[in-house]
Amino acid sequence: MKKTITIIGKLIAALAIAIILFLAIVFLVNIVCNKMEQGKKESYGQFVTVDGKNMNVFIQGQGEETVVLLPGYGTAAPALDFKPLIDELSPFYKVVVIEPFGYGLSELTEKERSTENIVSEIHEALQQLNIERYILMGHSISGIYGLDYVNKYLNEVSAFVGLDSSVPTISEKKIGSPIIGTLKLLKKSGLARLQIKLGDDPYATLPYDDKTKEQLSILIHKNRFNPNQLNEAENMYANFRAAENLSFPKNLPVIFFIQADHKVTERWIPEHKKQIKDLVHGKVMTFEGDHYLYRTKAKEIVENFRAYMDEIK
């Protein structure tokens, strides 16, 4: 029995040492990779000063009308991720991509990621660029921020376009401190990098060039689970609740491009239709595809968007 216990003890000790060594290697590799990637990171767009910090914006196109693109939650580099859509829009519009704090090349902020703060910062960025009239186009969670935005700055927004955008009635679940703490540990330990490495590359089969894919990869590692995005996740439930009593202004043109078959809920299409039922100009269009429709359906989205804007003139 003593011999058996000794053997088991040695096995447990060996396993513990192996785990510690593995975690140490993951930690060190993450540090080295972060430093290497910092040197490979390339600038794009331009900085504007918002609340005393640098916010990155990317502008392409010379059209008379301006389209302002807002990202979904956790998009590592919005200006790069939106590239297929930007390329389809820019022959006809001036396209402005806002990278909120904690996204893309923008700095971090210490302010809470409440809808009020995020909307105020986006507006300040546009003010700094002297952009006073524009179409707001938002993906995912920007459907919530956009709803608040158009009510506050209705005199500036000429239309709202939702790209599989969130609706207040289909709320995200509340994310507690234990989950946030776990995600912080994953980031700090390097396990988040390992998780990405072992997972599928979301851009592998998509129409992005190799250079763009490399920069996307660098910024995914840089921004995933950063303090601003974690704080935004903590505030997400409250931000959805705050939007429950909001509706789009009756005379504001609104068009949604959404998934035809949502994998989680059958309410996706009905709830979007509810949002536009009382509007003078409201429309819902569905596409076969996933949540990131603009990556694969950019051309179809822009063609239908332009036709819609011509219809309502």
Rank of each mutant, 00 (worst) to 15 (best):
Lys2Met: 13
Lys3Arg: 15
Thr4Ala: 14
Ile7Thr: 13
Ile8Asn: 03
Lys10Glu: 11
Leu11Lys: 12
Ile12Tyr: 00
Ala13Ser: 09
Leu15Met: 10
Ala18His: 01
Ala24Asp: 03
Phe27Ala: 08
Met36Phe: 12
Gly39Met: 00
Val50Cys: 10
Gly52Ile: 10
Lys53Thr: 03
Lys53Pro: 05
Val57Thr: 13
Ile59Asp: 10
Ile59Asn: 10
Ile59Thr: 12
Gln60His: 13
Gly63Arg: 05
Glu64Asn: 14
Val68Asp: 06
Pro71Val: 02
Gly72Cys: 03
Leu80Ile: 11
Asp81Trp: 01
Lys83Leu: 09
Pro84Cys: 03
Asp87Thr: 09
Glu88Ala: 12
Glu88Asp: 05
Lys94Leu: 02
Gly104Ser: 02
Glu107Arg: 02
Lys111His: 10
Ser114His: 01
Val119Leu: 07
Ser120Leu: 13
Ile122Leu: 11
Ala125Arg: 11
Leu126Thr: 11
Arg133Gln: 15
Tyr134Ser: 07
Leu136Lys: 05
Leu136Gly: 12
Leu136Asp: 14
Met137Arg: 10
His139Gly: 01
Ser142Leu: 06
Ser142Cys: 08
Ile144Ser: 04
Tyr149Ala: 07
Tyr153Gln: 03
Leu154Ile: 13
Asn155Val: 00
Ala159Ile: 00
Val161Thr: 08
Leu163Asn: 05
Thr169Met: 14
Lys174Thr: 04
Pro178Gly: 09
Ile180Asp: 03
Ile180Trp: 07
Leu183Gly: 09
Leu183Arg: 12
Lys188Met: 12
Leu191Val: 03
Ala192Trp: 04
Arg193Lys: 10
Asp201Arg: 03
Pro202Cys: 00
Tyr203Val: 09
Thr205Tyr: 14
Asp209Asn: 15
Asp209Phe: 06
Asp209Arg: 04
Asp210Ile: 04
Lys211Ile: 09
Thr212Gln: 04
Gln215Val: 13
Gln215Cys: 08
Gln215Asp: 03
Leu216Met: 10
Leu219Met: 14
Leu219Pro: 02
Ile220Asp: 15
Lys222Arg: 12
Asn223Ser: 01
Asn228Cys: 10
Asn231Ser: 03
Asn231Tyr: 02
Tyr237Pro: 12
Asn239His: 10
Phe240Val: 08
Phe240Asn: 11
Ala243Lys: 10
Ala243Leu: 14
Ala243Trp: 13
Asn245Ser: 11
Ser247Tyr: 13
Ser247Thr: 14
Asn251Tyr: 06
Pro253Gly: 02
Val254Met: 08
Ile255Ser: 06
Phe257Val: 05
Ile258Pro: 09
His262Lys: 08
Pro270Asn: 07
His272Glu: 08
His272Tyr: 08
Ile276Val: 15
Lys277Trp: 03
Asp278Thr: 06
Phe287Leu: 11
Asp290Pro: 02
Tyr292Gln: 09
Tyr292Val: 09
Arg295Lys: 14
Ile301Gln: 07
Val302Leu: 02
Asn304Pro: 06
Arg306Ala: 08
Tyr308Val: 05
Lys313Leu: 11
Lys313Cys: 06
